[in-house]
Design a protein around this nucleic acid. Sequence first.
DNA 1: AATGAATGAGAATTCATTCAT
DNA 2: CATGAATGAATTCTCATTCAT
Lengths: 207, 207, 207, 207
Amino acid sequence: MSKVEEKKLEKYRKLLDAAYELAEHKELVSISIDEIVGRAGVAKGTFYLNFKDKYDLISKIILDRVCKFMNEERLKKHSLPPSAPIKEHIELLVGEVMKFLKSNMTLTKLIDKNVHTCVNAVIENRNGDFAEIYELIGDGLRNLGFTAEEVNAKLYLLFDMIVSSCCNALIRKNPLSPDRVCSQLTDIITCFYTGASLYKKSTEVAI
Amino acid sequence: MSKVEEKKLEKYRKLLDAAYELAEHKELVSISIDEIVGRAGVAKGTFYLNFKDKYDLISKIILDRVCKFMNEERLKKHSLPPSAPIKEHIELLVGEVMKFLKSNMTLTKLIDKNVHTCVNAVIENRNGDFAEIYELIGDGLRNLGFTAEEVNAKLYLLFDMIVSSCCNALIRKNPLSPDRVCSQLTDIITCFYTGASLYKKSTEVAI
Amino acid sequence: MSKVEEKKLEKYRKLLDAAYELAEHKELVSISIDEIVGRAGVAKGTFYLNFKDKYDLISKIILDRVCKFMNEERLKKHSLPPSAPIKEHIELLVGEVMKFLKSNMTLTKLIDKNVHTCVNAVIENRNGDFAEIYELIGDGLRNLGFTAEEVNAKLYLLFDMIVSSCCNALIRKNPLSPDRVCSQLTDIITCFYTGASLYKKSTEVAI
Amino acid sequence: MSKVEEKKLEKYRKLLDAAYELAEHKELVSISIDEIVGRAGVAKGTFYLNFKDKYDLISKIILDRVCKFMNEERLKKHSLPPSAPIKEHIELLVGEVMKFLKSNMTLTKLIDKNVHTCVNAVIENRNGDFAEIYELIGDGLRNLGFTAEEVNAKLYLLFDMIVSSCCNALIRKNPLSPDRVCSQLTDIITCFYTGASLYKKSTEVAI
DNA sequence: AATGAATGAGAATTCATTCAT
DNA sequence: CATGAATGAATTCTCATTCAT
């Protein structure tokens, strides 16, 4: 990377970080571009060299942060042997998503207003440890006989429910606490999983 | 109701409707109070006599509209005998929610940005035909042995998933079409239901 | 007029005058709304209560000023008996337009960039002494046998030439001085007038 | 021309053309240098190597295009024998100016805001077929006994009227259609011409 | 000569809110 | 209660111009 390109990238990062830091104290929507560039220490025009507008910036912040999550050691460290019961894998995933969001409340507030931006970003860019656990759950469903397309659809909706419910619990606490949400989500997904296996078997039988 | 009160209420309704009609063409966030009072045909000061600010107005619009949904004939007309298989009840509910939102895209866009405002409004104010179907599904879970609190938590999360996913499908179409979302949601919830019955039984057995 | 309406009108006038005064030193296009409201001593929002934007303001300034011209005594004072030769009427009109513009260079610069706004404003709103002289010339043409529509077209084009050429002479001096333009315009229009009479006669004869 | 000079000229032309093409969709005043260099495919700094600013560019565009008009075959193709009645020469000139502008509306809009830039450019740089027809009309006036200076003044004012009125008719259509403007301009100038011959004769007699 | 990243002053416009009538 | 003129801070975004490479 040339020196010029490096400098450009540095400014991009500074803007991303400045915005995130400001979002810790105020809603990003009500933070002005002036404040962001002021904190980043760049000229106002530079903002528009990097982002179309504030909403573009928000998308890019979310993408940046969730990519980090997916490579985090945390999923690996606690990770289970692939042979562990599916319920434990679900519990691990749900629990780690919640923990991650809990320790990044600023990000959580951003995601809460942009759930689908986040879900799409995660699924389209999945990699690292997250990708592994994601595939594992998918494999289970595939083994039950669902087509690849059905598996994707189900994973998408389930992951959407996880993200949306975790954010809601952390922000509004209400009507369910984060812990309750974790256990209920695990419950629901496990029941679904169990039911799915039955459902498939009976379908097969029916045929 | 006195004549004065009637007039006041009429202005309140006019404001609500004007805002909703305007939201059909533009994002409500970017509609000014000026435009709303202009279309409603009342003075600007009158707005502040009725609402704290624009966000208060948005909440009241959502509440107003979902209350109408819950009393609609549609749920009753197609309604099944309570003895029908649970899957059919779920299918009916999911299908009718999607149909309602599809024919109220303006409302759908509002809800998409305020999912939990909507879910809370619905669950707290549930009545009419919607309440019946809601109770029916709850009864099933209760019969499986879940505590009232657990039933509420599960219904909340499931309903949140329904609303959130329907809005997403209708607005972004992507990655799943509305029809796919309906069938997948029904699938997931039915599997969950089936699994839940097994889960409970095995728990009981385990105990 | 109520007190409130009076106050509103006063602010309107203040804005019109402030803008005109500022235009004496700078091009109106490069004067900011800030400067205008600053000089007028009203709030910035008030500007937008009165004008759509700066171009709307410019049109209204031109209209305001040319209406004043049309009622000025100057045309009356020197006025000729209607029976005077047409050339003298034309000379008077051209001369007075030039004198008026010369003593209102700020207005002249505005009109130079908006010739047709001005010509339309003048012709549509003509009244006072200007209207009289305008009609007189029109009468002459009508007497020659031109239809009303033809008379209007010719007057429009001739007046357009007068305004456009006077502005050009005063601003660019070049290639013709204001005096040369006056005499040449008078010449051209008089020749046209003379020729028109011949032209019409020969047409009649031809028929 | 050296290779370097050729490349430079090519960039100059690209900028001129890019600006003109952009002006087909938007007012040139509100087109940014950024857009122009973007479309031309050159760097921003290059713009300033070629033009002082945007207004310099506009002048150069007008000059470039009207020079093309003056060499067009169209005037020659339809051209009349010099002995044809003067009215036919005027009609040809007016008609061809209108046709040219009609088929170059983008240019017409530019000229409308810069009538005198255009008129000066045309008269100072006249050549080709246009120069011929221009001289022919001038000769007629000279033969009537006007001095060279008077002829120039009259031609300037008449040509100014032609350009200004054609632009106005094409852009605002109102109050006169392009066709009406053509016939009225021909009428006015022909009447002027006829009247001028009388006028001159009577002056001579008077002397 | 050519580039294009960076600048930052500055312009237009909006809009929630107040308050005298 | 209702009105709507007035406010002016705040915000977004543009853009001509510079200058290091």
